[in-house]
């Protein structure tokens, strides 16, 4: 191999195959993917996030929650995600139409959150976990985020949304911890994480409850 131009041409060509195959063709294939409108209910899925949840998504990205929490449900033959109750079907490309940037994740040091909103149901959102995960799960190594809460003196009746702190985490009496607007946005985002809607390319699977 002693011809410079030949080496150069080969270097461009080999690279171009992968560039066409993995950049151009996927854009061709998925570039015009649109939300699915259900024939039965007439509802469109997925839907863009409302303002507060979209703001929360930015906080989620900024804090790097994706370093431990994935947002993807693998198919039944490719892992135990569905059996574990992390989703009622595998995640598909259409689920992420409004996710930008994508938070798929590459490490599972903590539970998957793709369907966290579904799991949460009508329960109150996990403000306490956001404040200090150890207040709920002893031994958790998840980061505490006290900067999302304001410590203030109780004036009159305690605030409705003040944290109810367990033993060992209390603040001084006469004081209360109140979530900031950012904490509310983050919770709105977590609540919006759900894709338990059947799609033509991914039917829902019935899952036994695993507790």
């Amino acid at each position: 191999m002693n011809r410079g131009p030949l080496i150069f041409f080969g270097i461009l060509l080999t690279f171009a195959t992968a560039w066409c195959g993995l950049v151009l063709v996927p854009h061709q294939q998925l570039g015009d993917l649109a939300p699915n409108v259900s024939e039965e209910t007439g509802q469109s899925f997925p839907q863009a996030r409302p303002g507060d949840a979209a703001q929360g998504a930015r906080l989620y990205v900024s804090l790097g929650c994706v370093a431990c929490h994935t947002q993807q449900v693998r198919p039944e033959d490719g892992g135990g995600d569905i059996a574990r109750g992390w989703g009622s079907r595998r995640s598909v490309a259409r689920d992420y139409l409004y996710d930008r940037p994508l938070q798929l994740g590459s490490q599972r040091l903590a539970p998957d959150l793709a369907n966290y909103g579904e799991r949460l149901g009508t329960n109150p959102p996990p403000y306490l976990h956001l404040y200090n995960p150890r207040a709920i799960t002893a031994g958790s190594y998840c980061a505490a985020n006290p900067f999302f809460f304001t410590l203030r003196a109780v004036t009159g009746a305690p605030a409705v949304d003040a944290l109810r702190l367990p033993k060992g985490f209390e603040v001084a009496s006469g004081w209360e911890l109140v979530p900031t607007a950012e904490a509310d946005q983050l919770m709105a985002y977590l609540r919006s994480l759900r894709f338990s809607v059947a799609l033509p390319e991914a039917a829902l699977k019935l899952v036994e409850e695993n507790k």
Partner: peptide
Amino acid sequence: LVVVTFPGRGVLPAITGAW
């Protein structure tokens, strides 16, 4: 261009990102 500045829809940035 394709991931950060003008991100494509949905999972496209993830595919380009993996590449």
